[in-house]
Nucleic acid binder design. Structure first.
Lengths: 350, 350
DNA sequence: CTGAAAGCGCTTACAG
DNA sequence: CTGAAAGCGCTTACAG
């Protein structure tokens, strides 16, 4: 019947008493702050271990850091995010920082709500993977908390860091690969956005697609379709495209997730891939390797992106004020879904 | 050049001054506590809105709740978890609670580290989806913080709540379905675990599989394979199985994620599904619908599980001490991967 | 129904 | 190098 929670908690004060030092000294050891002798540090650490001391994050958050980093994902279904998370985790492995995820399945307004919730919880910094977020909004958030954005090409931003692969280049690589395989009528399937700004990954991919098509003399075959990020909308768009008189030779989907839908629709319609239509995705998620998908895709090294963003964020938290913009070079991974169409040659038409 | 952060923050005190009431009164409005007049509440809320007040979660956490719920996922790649999360989100939509995810890709020891990090951050309660966690460990955690476990059949637990589908029943339904389709040599592909306890989902599925096989007179065909949760291990196990002299008619995989690998291996080996071998999964994740998968699976209503666990958790936080164990009835969704083998009849052998 | 005051467990200047 | 004291923004008894 002893009173629960009554002086049960081991605090910094308990540790201080046990070690025979001041509360301030314990705090310094806890924070790895300068100005503590090795002897004192050792004593304190011994006491912490003996007593099983755990720092109270809320209390730390009142004055200093919470050692918590927020990660915002706009979508948890896309397996690409798992790669990013794995990179974040490994970057933080031996640090005091704990990453915690917020998931916003229901669009931009929800994204802001989660960001606010993270700021309310005094998180030290945020990694935002929110491809639909407006540029202005990102700046406003950056005024309140250090942030790193993945999938936002804010090259000129000074108040926040960005981590990306070169999406325009990646899209160009895809188009070139398909053209070399004899494909001419290459369509691009993009996501429907309210505001299509140049800094968005999807827009960058579209820019790369258009530029390379033109460059290869395939300008007249440029065909961009937009669909909402729902299964129904996506499948409908693909169905229309594949049923039309001017069916494309190849469909380049802005992300694997959509490309898997395209494979499904093509199969349902009795079309062979890549015989009737080649299909290429983006992200090189693990499912691309499955034989039933065998999806050609662009590897943008999600793990590297995650790792790098966590590192940059911690640098920011520790005081860096200069912005950094990290860009990874994308890499094509060819699989069955885009094998060469024919041997008629790979020279451009017109 | 005004001093940043200097009295800039709008606190409960600012609001109190603006509204002309006491700090305690504002706190009560914030917490929806009893004993405040409508007039006072209105005044305070008006001030909050005007000043753009946001509660400081760390400060709240010092004395009361943080309104933060932790969700632990052992794996972010399995799309089933997205269903759970979607349920959790909708349950918390109109509440003050914010769910934050921790991801432990690297096994049980990491799971505990994340749970500790969540407790350190004074989260009000946790939802654990950690199929490999030991029973004792769960109890120890439950002593420190309210928890709900998904995927743990701790029917007798009094200190924590559980939310599950009836895994043994689900597995039985699969076996029955395959047997009715003329399959006799039905193998079960399970995950490799250090401790296979009866409360784990995977064990429950195996129990259901064995019992139903026996019941249908197929006891001599019982064949259980174990593989680690990695692509390489899984594929190797499946390859061995499909290449053996006594190749099964059907493989029942403990989760869709593994079943997709099985489809891939079968295809690579030139086997037709379901002609040469039928394949069935568990979870009915969205990818089952893709034509290239067309995977028969068991729907255990991930969204309902998530919704229910969030509700139960909040009840616990609000004071319920009686344990609740919620069980959903699983439902078979038949697709192409398990079409009937032949018309030789569906009667049992021997 | 309303408010003044103590205190949650830390960190941060500031003295010594 | 070490420590005493103030204070972060709330909640919680306790009085009125």
């Amino acid at each position: 019947m002893m009173p629960k929670k009554k002086s049960e908690r081991v605090t910094i004060r308990t540790v201080a008493e046990d070690a025979g030092v001041s509360v301030a000294a314990v705090s310094k050891v806890l924070r790895d702050a300068y100005g503590v002798s090795e002897a004192l540090r050792a004593k304190v650490q011994a006491s912490m271990t003996t007593l099983g001391y755990r720092p109270h994050a809320a209390a730390r958050g009142m004055r200093g850091q919470t050692y918590t980093l927020g990660v915002l994902f706009s979508d948890i279904r896309n397996p690409f995010f798992a790669d990013i998370m794995s990179g974040v985790n490994s970057a933080l492995e031996r640090t005091q920082y704990q990453p915690l995820l917020g998931i916003s399945n229901s669009g931009p307004s929800n994204e802001l709500a989660i960001v606010n919730a993270m700021i309310d919880r005094q998180m030290d910094g945020l990694i935002l993977v929110a491809p639909r977020m407006a540029s202005l909004e990102a700046s406003l958030i950056a005024e309140r908390v250090p942030i790193v954005m993945i999938g936002h090409h804010e090259r000129a931003a000074t108040d926040l860091d960005t981590v990306n692969n070169d999406d325009a280049l990646g899209a160009g690589i895809v188009v070139r690969h398909l053209a070399e395989g004899g494909h001419r009528k290459i369509a691009f399937l993009n996501i429907q956005l309210e505001l299509a700004h140049g800094f968005l990954v999807t827009t960058q991919r579209e820019i790369g697609y258009r530029a390379t098509m033109t460059e290869l003399g395939l300008g007249r075959n440029i065909h961009v379709l937009y669909a909402e990020q729902t299964v129904r909308d996506t499948q409908t768009a693909i169905k229309h495209l594949l049923a039309s008189k001017h069916r494309p030779d190849a469909i380049f989907c802005w992300t694997d997730f959509i490309a898997f839908q395209a494979l499904s629709v093509a199969r349902d319609m009795g079309l062979s891939v890549p015989g009737d239509v080649a299909i290429v995705g983006y992200d090189n998620t693990t499912d691309c390797d499955l034989a039933q998908n065998a999806l050609t895709s662009i590897d943008q090294s999600g793990q590297v992106l995650g790792l790098q963003s966590a590192r940059l964020l911690i640098e920011r938290i520790k005081g860096r004020t200069q912005a950094e913009h990290f860009v990874v070079t994308p890499r094509l991974v060819v699989r069955g879904s885009s094998k060469a169409r024919s041997h008629k040659g790979a020279d451009a038409e017109g």
